Amino acid sequence: MPDSWPSWQADADRWGCITQVMGIEAGHCTQPHGPTGCTVLIARDGAVAGVDVRGAAPGTRETDLLSPANLVERVHAIALCGGSAWGLDAASGVMQWLDEQRIGLDVGVARVPIVPAAVLFDLLVGDPGIRPGARQGYTACQQAGKTPLTCGSVGAGSGASVGKVFGMPCAMRGGIGSASLTVQGVTVAAVIACNALGDVIHPGTGSVVAGARTSPTGHVLRNTHQALLRGESPVAILQGSNTTIGAVATDAVLSKSQAQRLATVAHDGLARSISPVHTMSDGDTLFALATGKVAQHPGMLTLSAMATEVVARATVRAVWSATAYQDDAGLYLPAVTDVRCGGNRF
């Protein structure tokens, strides 16, 4: 394992967090009885933003306005939510909180908070009738701050799962993770809610960290990529029943077109850490935020390399930090710590 990669046991300081980006606050609302939840990123002074949707089954709000061809330049928050399409309602609560703080686009008679959002499908875990709504979005804003964001089975990652190509009974627990890097005085960070159809891969070793198991009760990882190449048939997969969502943020100054490019190249981090990725059953969506709080700019090539790295790290951290799940219906989703000795070497 390269020295630049923290081990899964490493403390949070070695991983970093998206709140280390100047101008970004973050918070969760977790509904443990779902389990589901939402995670919010707040830019009180606004942030230039971009988005790139790669999965074929996305659930999003306010993404069209992020096109460089469209008028609005800055957003004030990003909402990442569980609950499938119902979860988009959490953004309304984020808007309410921002409105109360008088944060938003000044249109003369009011300040309109701009809150793009994306959702993941977590209805197959727990009670599908429990979903994040406006109240949960508001609560996530109340919890937001500059302290390190908790990772694992919380917020938008509460009901996440990974490794579902061969059926939900053989899957594992997903989650939400964050990571950051600072180069030449500029910080780039990511937060990723990983609910992927595919396996999560360690980019440093190529080994499977979490994913499809060989049996519903076992703790041996199947390696989905190799299994598919061997000719093993996937189960019938409900379209849109997966999705990895997240955001990258930097305190560098970016134009709107540069922010969109950063969101685009950040998907390389998902390609390094999830296999298969961007499938017909995933709605993979990444936002990019630039707060412009520092004058330094190492160049887009360096920022792109940083974005790719922190997205990969945050994805791996999401599953490394997750806890096992078991419900009364018999669904068992082990955590990484449960399968390490079952054929997973990293």
Score class of each variant (00 low, 15 high):
Ala140Pro: 01
Ala227Trp: 11
Ala117Gly: 07
Gly55Met: 07
Leu71Ser: 10
Thr150Arg: 05
Arg74His: 11
Val53Gly: 09
Val208His: 07
Ala77Asp: 08
Ala196Cys: 08
Thr315Gln: 09
Met306Arg: 01
Ala307Asn: 09
Asp13Ile: 09
Asp338Ser: 12
Thr308Ile: 11
His33Gln: 15
Thr63Asn: 06
Thr315His: 07
Pro6Cys: 08
Val311His: 13
Gly137Glu: 02
Val265Pro: 04
Gln9Cys: 00
Ala190Glu: 11
Ser255Glu: 11
Pro116Asp: 12
Leu238Pro: 00
Gly152Trp: 00
Leu66Val: 14
Pro68Phe: 13
Thr60His: 12
Asp52Gln: 14
Ile103Ala: 01
Trp8Arg: 11
Gln296Thr: 02
Asn223Ser: 12
Trp15Thr: 07
Cys194Asp: 03
Phe287Gln: 06
Gly292Gln: 10
Ala322His: 10
Arg222Pro: 00
Asp106Ala: 11
Leu289Tyr: 12
Gln258Thr: 09
Ala227Asn: 07
Gly93Trp: 02
Ala57Gln: 03
Ala236Met: 13
Thr139Pro: 00
Val209Trp: 03
His28Pro: 03
Gly27Val: 02
Phe166Leu: 11
Ala47Thr: 12
Gly152Gln: 05
Trp86Tyr: 15
Gly23Ser: 07
Lys146Thr: 13
Ala144Glu: 04
Thr214Ser: 07
Ile274Lys: 00
Ser281His: 08
Arg135Trp: 00
Asp11Cys: 08
Ala117Asp: 05
Leu41Asp: 04
Thr315Met: 10
Gly129Pro: 00
Ala57Trp: 04
Pro35Val: 06
Val115Pro: 09
Gly59Ser: 12
Ala266Trp: 08
Val253Met: 12
Glu73Asn: 11
Gly283Phe: 00
Thr150Cys: 01
Gln9Ala: 10
Thr217Met: 12
Leu41Tyr: 05
Leu301Asn: 11
Gly46Tyr: 10
Thr30Pro: 01
Val209Ser: 06
Ala43Cys: 15
Val336Phe: 14
Val48Trp: 14
Asn223Thr: 10
Ser321Thr: 10
Leu149Asp: 05
Gly34Leu: 04
Thr243Asp: 04
Glu73His: 03
Leu71Ile: 10
Leu181His: 13
Ala271Glu: 02
Gln142Thr: 03
Leu124Pro: 00
Leu262Ile: 13
Ala288Phe: 09
Val51Met: 09
Asp284Lys: 05
Val220Thr: 15
Leu120Ala: 07
Ala193Leu: 03
Leu254Phe: 12
Ala26Gly: 03
Pro6Gln: 03
Arg54Gly: 05
Trp5Leu: 14
Ala322Asn: 09
Pro169Asn: 12
Gln142Ser: 05
Asn344Phe: 07
Ile237Gln: 09
Ala47Asn: 13
Arg230Ser: 15
Tyr325Thr: 04
Ser275Glu: 13
His278Arg: 01
Arg345Gln: 15
Gly211Ile: 02
Gly133Cys: 03
Thr205Met: 02
Val186Ser: 06
Leu228Met: 14
Val220Ser: 15
Gly155Leu: 04
His278Pro: 01
Ala47Cys: 12
Gly34Glu: 02
Val316Trp: 00
Ala144Phe: 02
Thr63Val: 15
Trp8Ile: 03
Ser321Gly: 04
Gly23Gln: 10
Leu221His: 04
Val154His: 08
His225Cys: 05
Val53Thr: 15
Ala118Ser: 14
Thr36Leu: 06
Asn242Val: 01
Ile130Leu: 13
Leu286Phe: 08
Arg74Ile: 13
Cys17His: 10
Val310Lys: 10
Pro58Leu: 11
Ala56Asp: 05
